[in-house]
Structure formats: C-alpha cells, structure tokens
C-alpha cells in the first residue's frame, strides 16, 4: 500500500498519490481505492490522510467564515454582496437594522449603498441556497477607511502563519490593523498610507512565495529594512 509522492512535492490534477488504505483529504479524490490529486498543489500525508495544499483555488463559503465583500445591489428588503465566491451573498435589512424592517420608513441605500465594503460573517449557506451574511457582531459592518487587497484564498492560512505568527509580526512591524477575509480579501488600516503599503507588500510577497520555506524570517527581514528606509525619510 504505497504512496507515490515526496512530502511537499508539487502535484498536478490527476496525479496518482496513494493506493490502498488511505483517506482522500483536501483537494484529492478516490476512485477504486486509488487517491488522485484534483488541484495543483503540494502533496502531504497526515496520518493516513492524503492532502494537497492547493496553489490555485477559489473561495467556497463556509458557515462562520469572516469575509469582506462589496455591496452590489440594494434590494427591497436587503442587499446583495459580492464575496468573490461562485455565489452572491445576501444581507437582510433586518440584520443591519436590528429591528423589523419597514419599507415605508427605511431607505436602505442610506444605510449601505452599492460599492460599499463590509466585513461580515457567513450566517447560513448550503448547496441549494445562496450564502446569508450577518454583521450583528463586534468588529463587523461597513468599512470606512483603509486599503483593500485580494490574494488567492488558499494563501490566507500562510498569511496567518503558524498560530498567527506571521500576521501578528506584520501587524507589529507596520502598526497596521489587518482583517483577513477568508475569501481572500484583506483590509489594512494603518496610521498612514505608507505603512499600509508596507503591509500590502509583505502580504503580496507571502502570496507569491507561500510554498517556500523560511518565509517568516525573510518577510521579517524585509519589513525591518523597508521600515528603516521609510523612517529615514
């Protein structure tokens, strides 16, 4: 019952990864006791589970995920929100107003208008229904300042780092607040645009080099150098 890959080997869709008594984990599938990769990524074995850490993927909503989205349309009892997923999300007016919604009194576009950015949580979602959002928790709601960037959603765990080591290092070095949407959209708010750009540059580099080792050290080094340059000015 062999496996057919080295740890962290880049594999392509259709590549045979293991045969026999293994479990098909993320980005793999099983057919007649054989496990194949279904995405380009790095193969890994976790106990008996064969996983592929995808290098390319798109965001699929999960209940409880924090996402950052753009209001697309103001409807008659809520908003549709683009969350960079195969499905458009819905945000109900009653969720934002925290009281029953009265069409005759409430002008929804004054609360949130097309083009507005929001931080929200996926409240419900299944195969048959589009995801519903909620903003009724601290830290969620309309975004008024900061900079937005988009990375491949599969790279978000790398941006967070082991036990949050990477993201807290970036926050510390740049003094920025960073909200990571699991849909790959990231909000950065700092004391000045220069520091926001510094954080963005670091995240961009993490995205590009996510599958290499020694990344945290390299990014720390880079941030320290760039910050020194910035502060000289």
């Amino acid at each position: 019952m062999p496996t057919f890959f080295e740890k962290k080997q880049v594999v392509t869709p259709g590549e045979l990864l293991a045969e026999g008594d293994y479990l098909a984990g993320e980005n793999t599938y099983m057919e007649e006791k054989k496990i194949y990769a279904s995405r380009i990524g790095l193969a890994d074995l976790d106990n008996k589970r064969v996983n592929v850490v995808a290098l390319r993927a798109f965001y699929v909503p999960k209940v409880g995920d924090i996402v950052i989205g753009t209001v697309k349309e103001v409807g008659f009892n809520g908003w549709t929100v683009d969350i960079k997923a195969p499905y458009t999300a819905l945000l109900r007016a009653s969720d934002v107003l925290s009281r029953p919604f009265k069409p005759q009194n409430d002008e929804l576009s004054q609360v949130l208008n097309a083009g507005d950015l929001i931080v929200a949580k996926i409240a419900s979602y299944d195969r048959a229904h589009d995801p519903q959002l909620t903003v009724g928790e601290p830290g969620l709601g309309k975004i008024t300042r900061g900079q937005i960037m988009q990375v491949t959603p599969t790279k978000i765990p790398r941006v967070i780092g082991r036990k949050g080591s990477m993201i807290s290092m970036i926050k510390q070095e740049t003094g920025c607040q960073i909200i990571l949407g699991l849909n790959g959209v990231i909000l950065i708010t700092g004391k000045s645009p220069e520091y926001e750009e510094l954080a963005m540059m670091a995240i961009k580099k993490i995205e590009e080099e996510s599958h290499t080792s020694g990344l945290t050290d390299r990014i720390t080094q880079l941030l320290k150098e760039e910050k020194a340059k910035l502060e000289e000015k």
Binding site: P13, E31, S38, I40
Partner: peptide, 11 residues
C-alpha cells in the same frame, strides 16, 4: 481550468 483552481479528475 487547472490554472483557475477548479477541481479536476485529470488533465
């Protein structure tokens, strides 16, 4: 399709 990160059985 592979580059778009869409799951596939094989190329």
């Amino acid at each position: 399709i592979a580059d778009a990160g869409i799951p596939m059985r094989d190329l």
